[in-house]
Simulated scan of single mutants.
Amino acid sequence: MTDPTPIFRSDLLASGITADELRQALRSGALAPVAPGAYLRRADADGLDDVARHRARARCVQHALGGDAVLSHVTAALFHGADLWNPGLSRIHITRDRRSGGRRTDHLHVHTAPLARDEIFVAGAAAVTAPARTIVDLARSLTVDEAVIAGDSLLRIHPSALMGVPGALDAAAQRCGVASARRVVGLLDGRSESPGESLGRLRLRSAGIPEPSLQRELFTPDGTFVARVDFFWEELGVVGEFDGMGKYGAGDPASTAESVRREKLREDAIRDLGFEVVRWTWPELFRFDVVVDRFARAVGRARHPHPPTATTPARRTPRAAIHPARG
């Protein structure tokens, strides 16, 4: 992750640029304001999306507040490169190791809380809360869906953070929201590879569907790799797949057609191993009863396969060799 470097008014004036020259650079558009007293070159500013703009603003705010200001919560998660769902990006989050002095405005939230040295991490040349601390802070302050998406993503990026989460929870024992955080942490799994997979896992749990294995590799009996699947219920004979749709090459009809063809062949190969396939899309995560019914029908078919007919020839369907995902 490489963000453009902000240019600070104080540095420009110290280098000999006059206030009039600075005003002219702003009027002409050569410089774009990103925070009070901080600017980006116009070419850099125009290339920023909302997340990159938040990070640029955060670096400026941290510079203005001084060395004890550590980026935290949603802001830290963005510096770690985590997935966030519907994040509020208007407010920069800072934590200071102080007993008082917290404040919240439309654009800044200063948290005051104990902050040990091993809870500080350097990301993109900025001091941010370490992954385990960030997971717990988010679990205390976001909804369950939002916190699980962020927590799964942080564990995927920083697997070793899992070892630090219990200690981070203990350190937060007297802070607001820690009871919710303990429940959220019990739901996290860094093997989920997208926000949709994280939400799917939560929806399956809420529906009372047995816990699936995640990211399992399927092979033919002779050892040929067939597929790596999102969700897998070996005993039920069912594979679950979240359709993120982005993989289908939106905007490029030829690419989309080829992606769909390959996905169809992949699904046929999974069925040839004797497994039923249940798929769901992002909108269906919010009307999951449709998926629950689909899952029940798939389980029924897996347990009671249709008898062969003239148009449905009998076939051998040996169950696949199964391995946890590698890497």
Score class of each variant (00 low, 15 high):
M1C: 02
T2G: 12
G16P: 00
R23A: 14
G29D: 08
A30S: 14
G37K: 03
A38G: 15
Y39M: 05
L40M: 00
L48W: 07
L65H: 12
G67H: 13
L78I: 06
P87R: 02
L89G: 08
T95I: 11
S100N: 14
V110L: 15
V110S: 04
A113L: 11
L115Q: 01
A123V: 07
A127F: 06
A130R: 05
T134I: 09
T134K: 03
A139R: 00
R140G: 07
E146T: 06
I149L: 10
G151S: 08
G151L: 03
S153V: 10
L155R: 02
A161Q: 07
P166E: 11
A168T: 05
D170T: 08
A179W: 10
A181N: 00
G190K: 04
E193P: 02
R201P: 10
A207H: 11
G208W: 08
I209H: 01
P210A: 14
E211K: 14
S213G: 13
L218C: 08
T224R: 15
A227W: 00
D230L: 05
E234N: 10
G237L: 05
G237D: 03
F242D: 00
D243R: 02
G246Y: 11
G251C: 09
P253R: 11
A254N: 14
E258Y: 14
V260G: 01
R262C: 04
E263T: 15
E263Y: 13
E267H: 12
A269G: 05
E276R: 12
R279N: 08
R279Y: 09
A298Q: 00
P308R: 13
A310P: 05
T312R: 15
P313W: 11
A314V: 11
A314H: 13
T317C: 10
P318D: 06
G327A: 14
